[in-house]
Design a protein around this nucleic acid. Sequence first.
DNA 1: CTCCGTGCCTGTGAGC
DNA 2: TGCTCACAGGCACGGA
Length: 284
Amino acid sequence: MPELPEVECIVRDLNKYLKGKKITGVFFIFYQMLQGVSPEVFGREIRGEVIQEIKRRGKYILFFLSNDKILEVHLRMTGRLYYYSNSVAPEKYTGAVFYLDGGDELHYQDIRKFGTFRLHVKQDLSQLKPYLLGLDPLEDNFTLNSFLEILKRNPGRKIKPFLLDQKNIAGMGNIYTDETLFRAGIHPQRKVNSLTLQEIKKLFESLLSTLKEGIECRGTSVSDYRDIRGQEGEFQKRLKVYRREGAYCLRCGSTIQRKLLAGRGTYFCPSCQPLSCNKRRWEQ
DNA sequence: CTCCGTGCCTGTGAGC
DNA sequence: TGCTCACAGGCACGGA
């Protein structure tokens, strides 16, 4: 499941291989990701345009094309982008093929077909979905102070659903949220307004360092994730709690637990991440 | 306000 | 062996 670090790696690689290339044709094999837009219309808008730059916001990938067109791609659960320097036959789950000048190809694959493509023409960037989300942790405006501000706006929420909500912070998914909370020593069910200033500082640092470590490891390939050349990441080897139910905590030796929270499997160490907190509240 | 379930999909793996 | 079913979890949406 691509989260911020995986999407960041994909976007860096896309820029390396696709910048300046012209899209000479598009072949759509399944259409769910087009969300009702006909493949003919979609293809007509994209064909002939040059890929000027690829950016990321949260988990969204944005292809900035010539003529002020923007192709927005969200990989959701199992979406993948594969780059080939030559012509390759579509596979079982290939939903779209972008043909590029020079014979390069970009294939979109998606087993579960949850991914979405959206096309924007001459749009005010700030009105686009990816820019209506919360702070992106890799952008300059994500600071301890701005983090404190959004926490203050959500005093009653549990910290895990808070971190997963893209309107607060853009890019956190289930894996990096559980790993961040473990590294910060915070129970996923702790209420935002129960956190001490010290804990918030720890959380802020853990969030950034976990995401950055994820990027350095080129992502987490626990099941589906591959980079645009089909390579696995390495961060799965550094997971401390995610999918480690029943195993020993690498820090204290207690047993890692799993609970359903916010509708997702949630992994934590009950000893390193205690639920009870009798420290002074940060907001007072 | 916050949380929870459902739908969108299909592969994997546990248990019978 | 082969079947069923929970699970995987990003996001939108409706309801408690």
